[in-house]
Simulated assay, not measured.
Amino acid sequence: MSTRGKNHSEWDSISTLYHTVVGQLTIPIAAGLVDWVHETVPLNGPGANAMDNGCGTGIVCSLLKSNYPTLPVLATDFSSAMIDEVLRNAEESGWKHFQARVLDSRNLDSVETESVTHLFTTFMICLAPDPDQIVSEMHRVLQQNGILGLAVWARPNFGFFEAAWIEACHELDPTYEAPTLMDPEWIEPENVRRGLAKAGFKSVEIKAEQQSWDWENVNAVSTYFFDGHNPGNTKWHDSWTERGQSIDKVRPLFERKLEEAYGQSDGSLKGPVPFCLAIARK
């Protein structure tokens, strides 16, 4: 069933929390992408197989195996902790025709050329190094007339946390500039279209949408943002402390800004997160 590796990445420490916290945002998005791909090229067609590249904790894998249990599925991720999460889920759920491997998406060396009919990648391209190389590798492993289903965030700094974080920091240090978390060439719809075409993909279709992210209260958001070890959030924290500034001082300001932007009458928080979906053919 599996190939476990020794690769470690900055995503290892968030593998368990990711599915619980981020999953409730990304599961409906991934479900929409899987449905769109299936409507275009059926996942239950003859000879179909699927690959989830940058699988994380296996959200797409779960959707595929729930709806198409006999479909052969390969999951890959650079984080061995993420692959361990996927394998635990696979074993508990009794998935058949399933494999998981620790692989760097820039070099899918153990995946044969033109061996995949349906290839998925969700919210990895925009955050990963060398996205053009990753897309080139996905084009290589996809069969002729195969289909790619892709999801990316649509703001260079994700959107939900951005304004609250920057405004809170500016109250303490007006000269602070937050580093960009995502490659701008892989977030905007037309940039995604151009990047896929450059890699040789055809019949590219794009949808720009947004999903509501709902939280029980501001403390839940703050705990995830500051204590959850998400590499993107950590990059912002480091950019702040490297200036000699204190996380403890900015945290209550950040919480106040979140409540002002997203607070509901019952104490919960709700705010939009923009994203892009794309399908393309080889």
Score class of each variant (00 low, 15 high):
L103F: 09
D104T: 09
D104C: 08
D104Y: 15
S105R: 00
R106N: 04
N107L: 06
L108N: 05
S110T: 11
S110R: 11
V111W: 00
V111E: 01
E112D: 06
E112I: 07
T113D: 01
T113C: 06
T113E: 01
E114H: 08
V116H: 00
T117S: 10
T117L: 12
T117D: 08
T117A: 05
L119F: 03
L119G: 09
F120M: 14
T121Y: 07
T121S: 15
T121P: 06
T122A: 15
F123G: 13
I125R: 11
I125Y: 05
L127D: 09
A128R: 00
P129L: 08
P129W: 06
D130W: 07
P131S: 11
D132V: 14
D132Y: 15
D132K: 10
Q133A: 13
Q133D: 07
I134K: 01
I134L: 01
V135Y: 00
S136W: 03
E137S: 03
E137K: 05
E137M: 13
M138D: 00
H139A: 10
H139N: 09
H139T: 05
H139D: 05
H139R: 10
R140E: 02
V141L: 01
L142S: 00
L142A: 02
Q143I: 00
N145Q: 09
G146C: 04
I147N: 03
I147W: 03
L148A: 03
L148W: 03
G149V: 03
L150H: 11
L150N: 07
A151Q: 14
V152F: 12
V152D: 15
V152R: 09
W153M: 15
W153I: 10
W153A: 11
A154N: 06
R155N: 15
P156W: 01
N157V: 04
G159S: 13
F160S: 12
F161P: 03
F161I: 11
A163N: 07
A163R: 09
A163M: 08
A163F: 04
I166V: 14
I166S: 07
I166E: 13
H170Y: 01
H170D: 02
E171I: 05
D173R: 02
P174F: 12
Y176W: 15
Y176E: 02
P179D: 11
L181N: 11
L181D: 08
L181S: 14
M182Y: 11
D183H: 15
D183C: 13
D183R: 14
D183N: 15
P184A: 12
P184T: 14
E185W: 08
E185N: 01
E185I: 04
E185P: 01
I187F: 07
P189S: 09
P189E: 09
P189G: 06
P189T: 06
E190R: 14
E190M: 15
E190I: 09
N191R: 13
N191E: 12
N191D: 14
R193M: 04
G195A: 12
G195K: 05
G195M: 06
A197G: 11
K198D: 13
K198V: 04
K198Q: 13
A199V: 01
G200R: 04
G200K: 02
F201N: 00
F201W: 04
K202A: 11
S203F: 02
S203L: 05
E205W: 03
E205L: 06
E205A: 05
I206V: 08
Q210S: 03
Q211Y: 03
S212R: 08
W213Q: 07
W215Y: 08
W215H: 04
W215Q: 02
W215I: 01
E216I: 11
E216G: 10
